[in-house]
Design a protein around this nucleic acid. Structure first.
Lengths: 180, 180
DNA sequence: GCATTCATGTAAAAGGTTACATGATTGG
DNA sequence: CCAATCATGTAACCTTTTACATGAATGC
């Protein structure tokens, strides 16, 4: 139930409404987890029932600002330290690579080149994001920056891999050599 | 509906029963997509109804070997070339990083070190897998090797990142410097 | 003979997406 | 006044996981 912990984490950075959380999810932590408002609103109600969050204030248009309770913060910490991360991989763009052999080599190469462009574009986006954010010395910014660094390295490595792969997709060499 | 395309892809490599597919899923393509037998069996029935696969042979213990139809192969190719990959990210171990600020710096560092060990272990596993597989010149092996190379580069980059991050998690520097 | 592996399934529950629905407030 | 954004929700559907269930063949 990672949605719950994602919401606890986002709320640890300050009070927010479901609407706010949905938007935050689309930027920062959304690189790791996404959810639509239709999933967030009922989950917040369940979390309030469980005592993990509480309504801190109500605003215009029925806006409800949620705040983390002590119990909620404890649950977030427990999750981080005691529960082993779910390393279940689910990556559609990798899945596709396995099956590129059913296409013409040229077509497979073309798709890998496109994959490289996508990763390069993502890298570019992250570089700009990094430059645009006024990082401060707060713990949440420190780890936000560390998470972004992960994205930078990941996208750089994937863009490089895709370029390498595109070259090797069409070359009828009996054995591939790695670049490392 | 990626499960369907994962199964089509696995079947493009040769006939297999649901049982076989569940096992293959745990090794090769399982690094990108996993599914349990309880999901695979009914999906194969639906795929047969849709004309994408057919029962090629029946064996002992009610074993049913499925074979890709022409329609199935066409659908696999259409998916690869015409449908844009779903780049929806869902990565619990990254999600955690965003929230490490709620822990003691030392605890956060410890978790990042553990993350580094996990990635290094994964890298080691892939290096061994690479050495153990008798790659041939077939298209499926070519792209299997390319997919594995992606895993090698990915795990190497992530292991390096985690080591870097562990160092920076506890250091109370006002601004982080990247290693690139 | 017995344990293991092979082999298939059903059903309930949980998690997630898409379509539909409503209305208040703000900015131009 | 009108469009855009804010703000919340329900319901149907699809996907995935977990629990339960059964029994045949193989190897020792």
């Amino acid at each position: 139930m990672s949605l719950r912990h994602a919401l606890l984490g986002l709320l640890s950075d300050g009070e927010a409404s479901g609407y706010d959380l949905a938007k935050r999810m689309d930027s920062s932590a959304g690189f790791a987890w996404s959810a639509s408002h239709t999933q967030i609103y009922p989950e917040l109600v369940r979390m309030a029932d469980a005592g993990l969050v509480e309504v801190a204030a109500e605003g215009p248009r029925g806006r409800k600002e949620y705040r983390l309770t002590g119990e909620g913060l404890a649950e977030l910490r427990r999750w981080l330290t005691d529960e082993p991360p779910d390393r279940n991989r689910r990556d559609e763009s990798l899945l596709r690579v396995f099956f590129l052999g059913v296409l013409e080599p040229r077509e497979a190469g073309r798709l890998l080149e496109e994959e490289g462009r996508q990763w390069a574009a993502m890298h570019e986006r992250l570089v700009e994001l990094d430059a645009a954010i006024p990082w401060d010395a707060s713990p949440s910014d420190r780890f936000g920056r560390i998470a972004l660094e992960r994205g930078l390295r990941h996208s750089a490595a994937m863009a490089e891999w895709a370029r390498w792969a595109a070259q090797h997709a069409a070359t009828p060499a009996p054995r591939l050599r790695t670049s490392r």
